[in-house]
Amino acid sequence: MDRIKEKMNQLRLEADESSAKVEELKAKVKTLEQENLQKDQEITSLAHKNNLLEDEVAKLETQISDLKKSADEGLQHGSQNEALTRRLQLLEEEAEEADKTLREANEKLRQTDVKAGHFERKVQALETERDTWESKYEEMAAKYAKVQKELEEFQIEIGNI
């Protein structure tokens, strides 16, 4: 009788541990979903920033083209030509910086996609683990019911003796 009670207590402890693990996994899934949402928002933000930078690059390229034409027309004006050349250099540097920023944003976007994929795989693994724990819990509940039934039959037999 004590062994059965001990076994029942052990099964209850295992069931409680399984429930705690399920709750913990649900919390982890929720956290990962929130992180995934944040990453999606960051991707949207970076995509918008990327579009703005592309527009800026197009504007800067147009400005560079215009400045080169002006420089060709103004060769006779030495001082103006030097000023325009300096301005052209600054614009080219800005264009290079904008291009560099664009490449960095694209790289961050790619890394975010990789991380999002990683977290999705992690969520799937956690869901699989949760399903395993749930099936183990159901098996243990079935075993408990079977043992309970056997105990009742045993008590009836003892009562008949």
Rank of each mutant, 00 (worst) to 15 (best):
E54I: 05
E150P: 00
K59Q: 12
L75D: 07
A145Q: 14
G74I: 05
K115V: 06
L90N: 11
L75F: 12
V123A: 11
K39D: 10
E23K: 15
M8A: 06
V114R: 09
E157T: 02
R86F: 03
Q10I: 01
D40H: 07
V147T: 10
Y144C: 02
A15I: 10
I156W: 07
V123D: 08
E94D: 14
S79E: 14
I43L: 15
A15M: 13
E127F: 01
Q76S: 11
E35M: 12
K115Q: 14
E61D: 13
A83T: 10
T132M: 08
E157Q: 09
L60R: 11
G78V: 11
D113C: 02
E107W: 02
V147H: 04
D40A: 12
L53N: 11
E94L: 11
D131T: 11
F154H: 04
T132P: 00
L91K: 10
H77G: 00
E96R: 15
A95G: 01
L67S: 04
E104W: 02
N106P: 00
Q80D: 05
Y137T: 14
L90M: 08
K122D: 09
V29P: 00
A71W: 01
L109I: 07
Q63D: 10
K146Q: 14
A141T: 14
K122F: 08
N81H: 13
D55C: 03
E153K: 10
S18V: 09
E152S: 07
T128F: 09
V29S: 05
E104G: 01
K146S: 11
R110S: 10
A142W: 05
A105Q: 04
K115T: 13
E97C: 03
K68I: 10
E61Y: 01
S79I: 08
V123F: 01
D131E: 15
E96K: 15
A58M: 07
D66W: 03
L46N: 15
A98G: 01
E96T: 09
D72W: 02
A27Q: 13
L102V: 02
S45F: 12
D72C: 02
E61S: 09
E152L: 06
G74M: 13
N106S: 06
S135A: 15
T85Q: 13
A116I: 13
E153F: 03
E104V: 06
H48D: 13
L88I: 03
E97W: 06
S45C: 05
G78N: 08
G74F: 11
K28H: 04
K5R: 09
E93H: 13
A95W: 02
E157M: 04
S79Y: 03
E42V: 04
K21Q: 13
S79Q: 13
D99Y: 08
E35Y: 06
D131F: 03
A83N: 08
L109H: 12
K28D: 05
A83S: 12
V57R: 14
E92M: 14
E14W: 03
E134D: 09
L91D: 04
T44V: 06
D113I: 09
E73H: 08
L75I: 15
R130I: 05
K146T: 10
D66G: 03
E120V: 06
